[in-house]
Write a protein that binds this DNA or RNA. Structure first.
Length: 466
RNA sequence: UGCCCGGUAGCUCAGUGGCAGAGCAGGUGACUGUUAAUCACUUGGUCGUAGGUUCGAUCCCUACCCGGGCAGCCA
């Protein structure tokens, strides 16, 4: 007999004489003549109420059906006599597949997020994490849907990379050398990396952008979606050492087109979650963040504000606020500044663009006609309330001479970027792209405040459990 | 990495320089178309680790470990 998912059984339009459910016991309530069991199989937030009558030959099995046990129920789907649900299943055959004794750590009551992190192998069985990871799955699908529908091609950029200066932070070293006794160079001083697996130093990628630019220079519209690694000792609720990033790269596109794409993309993901994960979002709105649903609606309705870096600095200077970090043209916007802009001043998502050249990456396109000492590049950051930066992107410098000047400014060696420079030598085109942190997007959509709780198994400094 | 807060029962927490506490979970029983069921009884502790101060430290001090928050770095 074919198994029915709880999700489908709950949406049934008619009763059924024969149904098979399989899942895990969330709670059991015993009466004298029968027991109530809430069965959850992860297909949706809600469980199915199962009635096991004491006259049933299998009734003796119910004693083993404790919270956490896996069970299989053959029975009838009938309209519920109780108040809390439309359908329930009256068991005819009741089997406990795997018991869970009283050491099972998940209780019927709510647990702290910190405790649940320590039992990351069991937390998907909780309401909150079931919901988080259903939304995560759905939004991963929506990412592909958004780009595929717009004729973007999905590019798999390498996870192991030899370029050690992608400019996005400290990298994890990848090596198969014996760390206790590495081969030495001829002079005996350094490690001979030529003897390493790839014949050179290699790292885990911090960004697929430069490779994506290669493919945008051939397939026009491309995107990457994969794991990314940063070896930064960041201990915050918004940083992980391993996270997933989406990086579209678009040929024949300028910064405005890039900002349009970013806004449409973010809104698509929110709309998709609202449409396909309504019950899960409702749960977040009830137990995680009371303002969540209103905020998501608000973000969908309003166009994102666009504000140049220079304007932003003026707003901050005239805000009358005292800042922990001083505001001055040329300095990076700090978290407190970004939060003020998006949470207090504009009260909606804000795209800040045209940042000072000196504080941004070498590959960003120099803005034409900027004043001496106030040179900017076509960079953009999308800031959202509650999280801050969720997207960083730019129009790329497509002019060979300007790119070389940018590399000189950042003291980079052209030899390391010969292929990147070739893109500007042969058929160069204006192009732009951005990176969206998938986990940060999930935080925004679910209201979950810590990045460790929107990724199945978080990798943060000092922690790589499971 | 810096600053701040925390670590006491399985979980969430209270507490005191002199016998270790509650709620929930667990166990036993009762009751009930229940639904984070209810009621009664009940098991459960190396008070993070190591030093120090003290007649006596879970409590005060120091170091370390672990967790969290904020900041920087960024997505």
């Amino acid at each position: 007999m074919q198994r029915t998912l709880v999700k489908d059984a709950l949406n049934a339009t008619a009763s059924s004489n024969a149904i098979l459910l399989q899942g895990w016991v969330r709670t059991r309530r015993d009466a004298k003549a029968f027991s109530f069991i809430e069965l959850n199989d992860g297909s949706c937030l809600k469980g199915m109420q199962v009635i096991v009558d004491a006259t049933l030959p299998d009734y003796g099995n119910v004693a083993q059906a404790n919270t956490g046990a896996s069970i299989e129920v053959h029975g009838k789907l009938v309209e519920s006599k109780g108040g809390g649900q439309k359908w329930e299943v009256v068991a005819e055959k009741f089997t406990v597949l795997g018991e869970a004794d009283n050491t099972y750590p998940l209780q019927k009551k709510g647990h702290s997020l910190e405790f649940l992190r320590e039992i990351a192998h069991l937390r998907p069985r909780s309401n909150l994490f079931g919901a988080v990871f259903r939304v995560r799955s759905r939004l991963a699908y929506a990412v592909h849907q958004f780009f595929q529908e717009r004729s973007f091609h999905y590019v798999h950029t390498p996870i192991v990379t030899a370029s050690d200066a992608e400019g996005a932070g400290d990298m994890f070293r990848v090596t198969s050398l014996d760390l206790a006794n590495p081969p030495k160079t001829a002079d005996g001083k350094g490690v001979d990396n030529a003897q390493d697996f790839f014949g050179k130093k290699t790292f885990l990628t911090v960004s697929g952008q430069l490779e994506a630019e290669i493919f945008a220079s051939a397939l026009s519209n491309v995107y990457t979606f994969g794991p990314t690694f940063r070896a930064e000792n960041s201990n915050t609720s918004r940083h992980a050492a391993e996270f997933w990033m989406i990086e579209p790269e678009v040929a024949f596109c300028d910064l405005n087109g890039n900002m349009d794409l970013a806004e449409a993309f973010v809104k698509h993901l929110i709309r998709d979650a609202k449409e396909h994960c309504a019950a899960d979002l409702e749960f977040f709105g009830k137990f995680v963040d009371k303002d969540l649903l209103a905020r998501l609606d608000f973000v969908l309705e309003k166009p994102f504000v666009r504000c140049s870096y220079t304007e932003a600095v003026t707003i901050l200077e005239q805000s009358g606020k005292t800042w922990e970090h001083p505001v001055a043209w040329g300095a990076n916007l700090q978290a407190e500044h970004e939060r003020f802009l998006t949470e207090e001043h504009f009260k909606c998502p804000v795209t800040v663009y045209n940042y000072p050249r000196a504080i941004k990456a070498f590959y960003m396109r120099q803005t034409d006609g900027t004043a001496e000492g106030r040179e900017t590049v076509a960079a953009m950051d999308l800031l959202v309330p509650g999280i801050g930066e969720i997207i960083g992107g730019s129009q790329r410098e497509e002019r060979l001479d300007k790119l070389r000047a940018g590399m000189a400014l950042h003291q980079l060696n052209e030899k390391d970027y010969w292929w990147y420079l070739d893109l500007r030598r042969y058929g160069t085109v204006p192009h732009a792209g951005f990176g969206l942190g998938f986990e940060r997007m999930l935080m925004f959509v679910t209201g979950v405040a810590n990045i460790r709780d929107v990724i199945p198994f978080a990798r943060t400094p000092g922690t790589a459990d499971f």
